[in-house]
Every structure is written in structure tokens, then in C-alpha cells.
Amino acid sequence: MTQHIRELLDHAVAGIEPGTRDPVAAVMGRRRAARRRKAVAGAVACVLAAAGIAGGLALNRHDANGPMAPVGSVPVEPPTPRVVDRVVVAGAMRLPVPDGWRVATPGSDSPCGRAGDGQVLIYGETSDDCARSSIRVSTAKVLAYPVGSLEDLPGGSGIMTPLPLLTLPGGEPALLRDAFETGHTSMVLPWSKVILEFNLDGPAARTIAGTIRTEPVGSGRLNLVDSVPYAEFSRPEASGKFTVASHGKITDPATIAEVLALLRDQRKAVSGEDACSQPGDRAALLLLGNASVVYLTIDKDCQEAFSDRGGRVRLSDKAVRELTRLFGIEVR
């Protein structure tokens, strides 16, 4: 198989020829452009540094590390999906209707059924098999959507584990169920409170999902509930598996307050441009009662957390360790 793959890959690029006739000129041009950018950035940095020094003299700043980012915020109520110039708009999400595809809005019939209230249905040109060529866009109130997958463990118990997470262009996080692996992929956008159901084969669904854009909303520090009666934390073992031992539940108000304070203390807000979570990353799930959820990416290359109420921050190793300790979990 390995040899076949190599041959196929070789074949795939055998006919590739560079589009640039003078590669040396192209490379040197890039180098000059990079130097110009560096020079401009240096000048800007000098100006900002000077301004910062002046500002520092003028202001008595509370935080020696700079102004604190605001708490992230997203609308509480779900939006009503609509279609504007062949783009499905729902909350911060923008999904262009693929060329040749048709749209069904509430009340209008389609070969692929009716779009219910608060839904938009788009379907392919050849709609003889709607189960394989349609996308339904709907919305849901807070936590009225899948927040994790229930993992059955030996002994009949089950724990909630995080769904694969990706960051859409524009910065909104999205949770995936059956992430482009079957003919039905669900995508939940907790900030926009939008659910997309792709009744398409995986690659086609991935391609269309790749056209989704989101508006940069929701960034900032984590927006958290004030208090909850209990909290549950599931994180993977070193092996990547979720076990009973890698799951903790706390009900002690003081410990819950420590958890919330720890998360509130994470001040490095992550913009949509800098967010790094992607499917396949090691992830953890923090359920704050039945009121809110915090998703944590704890991969070696990417450590960040976002709240379904808004806000996304970079996580330090220390914060992850402390959170794990507060839930009495010993990672093996």
C-alpha cells in the first residue's frame, strides 16, 4: 500500500510546473517585501513604545501587564436564519448557497421537505436523494444542542466528552458530530446558537463547510456564570482516552468558586485570527451545572478555552494542571 501511495502522489505532481518563470526574481521580491514589512513594523513599534511610555507616565494603570481585555459576550437569544443575496445568514454565521443549489425557507415546500419555523433548507440541484444533498440550518437556545458525546464506560456509567472542535474563518468556534466521516455531519456554533446538519458525504460537507465565514464576535475573556451547584470536568488521559479516573465532579461551593476564579484569571484573550483549535486536538470539557459549558483545547501545540457564553483565552500549562487538581483528577 505504501508503495502505491507513493506512486500515486508522485503521479499527482509529475505534471506540475511552476507558474513563475523567474523564481529567483520572485524569491528576491518576497525578501524585499518582507524587509519592508519588518521596517514598517519596527517603526510602528517605536511609535507605540513611545506612546506607551508617555501614556504610562500619564496614567496610573491598574494592570502592569497592560489593559485587560473585556469579557466576551454573545447574544442570549438565538437568531432567525435568513437568506440575503444567496447567503444564509444566522447570527455571526454566513453560509453561501452553493451555485446551482436551491433554498427553502419556512412555509415553502421543496423536494427535500419543508423548512420548519426558524429554519433554512438548502438542497442540491439533483435533489432525487435529499438524504445525500441537503443542508438544514436551524437555531437553538443555550445548551439546547449537543455539547458533548456520552462515552460509555465499564460499569454502566457514562461521561460527557468533548466533541471535535474547529475554528471557522472569522473566529467562531464550531463543534462537530460525526466530523465529516459519515453522510451526516452536524455542526454546532455555540456563540451564534446555530446548528447545521450536512446531509452530504464527508468530503462534500467539508468543502461546503469550508465556505462558511463568521463575524468576529464573542472574543474576550471568558464569560462565566456567577455560581453553579455542581461542575464536571472531563479530560483525556495521557493515552488520549477518557476514563472514570479522568473525570471529576465537584459540588463544594468553595472549590467551584476556585474553578471559576481560575478561569476568570486567564487574561490572554484569543482573537478569531489567533484561535488554533482544530479537530483531532486533545480536548477537555467543563460542564458548569446545566447553565454553561467551557471547552478546552489542551493539545501540545494549542491550549485555549472558550465559553459558550462568549470569550476565548489562551490557557497556561499551570492553569490546566490547577484545573485538573481542583477536580481531583490524576492524569495517568
Binding site: 452553493p98 451555485d99 446551482g100 443549489w101 442540491g124 440541484e125 439533483t126 432525487d128 436523494d129 445525500r132 444533498s133 452530504l200 458525504d201 468530503p203 462534500a204 468543502t207 461546503i208 469550508g210 465556505t211
Partner: peptide, 8 residues
Amino acid sequence: AAAPPERP
């Protein structure tokens, strides 16, 4: 995608 995905 250069073209809309079709039924597989």
C-alpha cells in the same frame, strides 16, 4: 471548490 459538490 471549483464546482458545487454533487451527489457522490
